[in-house]
Simulated scan of single mutants.
Amino acid sequence: MNPSSSGWINKFGHLAQGETAHFPNFESLYQDLKKNGFVYGIHLDIPSFIDVEHALTEDEVAKINLLTALYFTFRFEKGDSDFELFVNTVFDYYQSLEVGKISFLNKILSGKQTESQLEKLLDSRIYLGGNAFNRAFGNSLTNSLLYVDVLIFRVYLQGYTSIMEHAQLLEYVTINIAYHALNSKEAKKADAKLIQLLASSLTYVNSEESNFDGTYRDVLKQNFTKCEKDYFMDMACLTIWEDKSLDYTESDYILSLGKDLEKSKKEVKSALDFVKDFFEKNSDKVAYLKDKNLALQFYDGMSKNVSKLILRNSKRLKRELTESKELVALLSKSAVKELDSDEKKKVQNQLLDIFKSIPSLAIFMLPGGAVLLPIFIKLIPKLLPSAFDDNRVEETS
Rank of each mutant, 00 (worst) to 15 (best):
S341C: 00
G7Q: 07
G368A: 04
T239D: 11
R135T: 01
F26Y: 06
A192T: 06
G18W: 07
S307A: 13
L261D: 12
S81D: 09
E53F: 00
L261R: 02
Y216V: 00
V306P: 05
E338Q: 08
E77H: 04
G159C: 08
F49R: 08
Q31R: 06
F26S: 04
M164L: 11
V205K: 01
N65Q: 15
L15W: 05
N391H: 10
K35S: 15
S251K: 11
F76S: 07
E165R: 03
N305C: 00
S6E: 02
G111I: 03
N391I: 00
A387G: 13
D32S: 13
P359G: 13
V39Y: 08
F153L: 12
L289T: 07
Q95Y: 04
F274I: 02
E165I: 11
F279N: 11
E27T: 13
T322R: 12
D32F: 02
A295N: 09
R217H: 01
L105T: 12
D300Y: 11
F298S: 11
P24I: 14
K276E: 14
E343T: 07
E267K: 10
D230V: 10
E326M: 13
Q350M: 14
D149M: 07
K325G: 05
L85Q: 10
I177Y: 06
A181N: 10
L109E: 07
V39W: 01
D82E: 13
N391D: 08
G214Y: 03
T225D: 02
E115S: 14
R154Y: 00
T73Y: 03
K325A: 12
A21K: 08
F212H: 02
H180E: 07
Q95A: 04
E228F: 07
V39M: 03
G368M: 06
D342R: 14
T225F: 09
I102E: 05
L384Y: 09
I254P: 10
F298L: 14
P359Q: 04
I310D: 15
W8M: 02
Q196C: 13
E267P: 00
I358M: 12
L198D: 00
L321R: 12
E262W: 02
N176L: 07
F153I: 03
V268E: 02
F23I: 06
N65E: 14
S5A: 09
E343W: 03
E242Q: 14
L361H: 09
F274K: 02
P385W: 08
A370L: 01
I46E: 00
M233T: 12
T68M: 08
L182G: 01
Q348C: 01
C227H: 10
